[in-house]
């Protein structure tokens, strides 16, 4: 039970850290403005003439590409830069509890930002008779996608004490994960690589796994895909932190 209590304490502190600085407010405002612009203007929400949120969810992987690393970049690099990591890891908690606590806090923060997009749901219901199933699934998918990106940012922020480096590296990794299944990328591999390798590379693409959700399909394979990205990245974080401590 004390593990849960420790994780909760860490998460609470981390979350209050977001709201103590302007980071949280700037992030939420920009996220909502951009998602509004892309959904209604670039995504052609009204032109589609259908009561669905396809044009809303379509943009999430691209928006998250920049915004999630911005949230995650300070997670560990800030602890390393300011020396509080030494304080945190000499407390009677395990490194895992600290990693999970900090990750959960920023995930909750992203969930809050995502929750604040609810006017879009109200709008679509007001304008037409929307099918709530795909919308609900879409939100779950979006949350898992954000969690996956966040875990990757968490890992890259443990690598360096420099937030800018951490941001750029995680954007690049997330971009690779978006593009992995894109034909121009897979074609590049098809020329010389064995089909199984092409399949593995394409399998890392987040796009097909994410599309399932906003079409209203809750496929366990998609859920496991995102959860395993989270699990693997957090494990990677713990390995990086351990090797950093060992010197």
């Amino acid at each position: 039970m004390s593990a849960i209590a420790n994780i909760k304490t860490i998460a609470k502190r981390e979350l209050s850290g977001y709201f103590a600085s302007p980071v949280a407010y700037v992030f939420i405002v920009i996220f909502l403005l951009m998602i509004g612009f892309f959904t209604f203007m670039a995504g052609g929400f009204f032109e589609r003439g259908e009561a669905s949120l396809i044009s809303f969810f379509l943009w999430h992987p691209w928006l998250y590409l920049f915004l999630v690393p911005a949230v995650g970049m300070r997670l560990w690099s800030e602890e390393r830069r300011s020396g509080t990591m030494e304080l945190l890891l000499t407390m009677p908690i395990t490194a895992w509890q600290a990693i999970v606590g900090k990750f959960v806090a920023s995930w909750i923060f992203l969930a809050l930002a995502l929750f604040l997009t609810f006017p879009v749901v109200i709008t679509v219901n007001y304008l037409g008779d929307a099918d709530m199933g795909p919308i609900f699934c879409g939100y779950i998918g979006s949350l898992l996608l954000a969690g996956g990106y966040l875990a990757i940012s968490c890992m890259t922020s443990a690598m360096t004490r420099n937030q800018v480096v951490s941001f750029i590296v995680s954007v690049v990794i997330c971009l690779l994960m978006i593009l992995a299944g894109w034909p121009p990328v897979t074609n590049m591999f098809v020329q010389w690589a064995a089909p199984w390798l092409v399949n593995i590379v394409a399998g890392f693409s987040v796009m097909p796994h994410f599309e399932g959700f906003h079409r209203g399909v809750l496929d366990s394979r998609d859920i496991i895909f995102f959860l395993s990205i989270i699990g693997f990245s957090l494990f990677g974080t713990s390995v990086i932190i351990r090797s950093h401590r060992a010197g």
Binding site: G17, A20, S82, G83, T84, E86, L87, T90, P92, T94
Partner: peptide, 22 residues
């Protein structure tokens, strides 16, 4: 038994770090 040992220790690291936003 790092957790049990750490529970007994109070530690002031070099340069006295703390969470500056709190």
């Amino acid at each position: 038994q790092p957790i049990e040992a750490k529970r007994l220790i109070g530690y002031l690291p070099e340069n006295a770090p703390s969470y500056t936003d709190m």
